[in-house]
């Protein structure tokens, strides 16, 4: 494990904590896309099918359990919690899941490391994670006042992806036979989706203004 990978994972963890903080303490999910959260739950459920069959490390298993548990509990909170669910604006969060799920599934059936159920599901989760942020980005554009926690949440998610790219570059040069086209290409696409958001995030930070994305 290199420093970029660890920093990436910690940033990912921090993004989840920021979102949980918003939900638990402020009891609000305003500006958060349930569609994106449901897609993430599906991403982790399909990627970590190996959790009980392939042991990599205690760190790996613990992180998997954290991401599975947090993603499903976030979905539960937004859908079912008495107070939190009231702040969810369904009319703004209109992205359709299957526009993303079906193409990712077809791609996973065509492009995978091995044609087995586990490997197809793994490839599907990689493709789906790459585009799962789209409903959230669409919702951000529609939101007039993006609160700080929501802005930080999306920023941390983007930073996590950027750090993973540095991790891959590092591993490519330090490990033999480290080539992973599926994760690299999807990861690059995923990070590029944040480019526009990053631009406005830094602009608002530089000018000390509230974050707002142009429609």
């Amino acid at each position: 494990m290199n420093i970029f990978r660890l920093a990436g994972d910690m940033t990912h963890l921090a993004s989840v904590l920021v979102l949980l903080l918003k939900i638990h303490t402020i009891k609000s999910c305003a500006g958060i896309s349930l569609k994106t959260q449901e897609l993430y739950a599906l991403v982790f459920a399909t990627r970590y099918l190996d959790i009980f069959t392939d042991f990599i490390s205690l760190y790996n298993t613990t992180m998997k359990l954290i991401f599975l548990g947090s993603s499903f509990s976030i979905v539960w909170y937004i859908r079912n919690h008495k107070i939190v669910s009231r702040s969810y604006d369904k009319s703004q969060d209109t992205f359709r899941h299957y526009f993303l799920i079906i193409p990712c599934l077809l791609l996973a059936l065509l492009v995978n490391e091995k044609f087995t159920f586990k490997e197809v599901m793994w490839a599907f989760s990689i493709y789906l994670e790459a585009v799962a942020i789209l409903p959230q980005l669409v919702l951000l554009q529609r939101t007039r006042n993006i609160d700080n926690l929501t802005g930080q949440y999306v920023f941390l998610l983007g930073a996590y992806r950027a750090l993973y790219i540095l991790n891959w570059i590092y591993r490519y040069f330090t490990e033999t036979h480290y080539v992973h086209w599926i994760t690299w290409v999807s990861g690059l696409v995923q990070t590029l989706l944040y480019a526009d958001f990053f631009y406005y995030y830094f602009e608002s930070w530089k000018n000390n203004k509230k974050l707002q994305l142009p429609a």
């Binding site: 990978r5 994972d9 790996n60 991401f67 490391e113 091995k114 087995t116 992973h180």
Partner: peptide, 10 residues
């Protein structure tokens, strides 16, 4: 035989 890589990343 196509070999799937070990998945050590999250």
């Amino acid at each position: 035989q196509l070999q799937a890589s070990p998945k050590d990343e999250l």
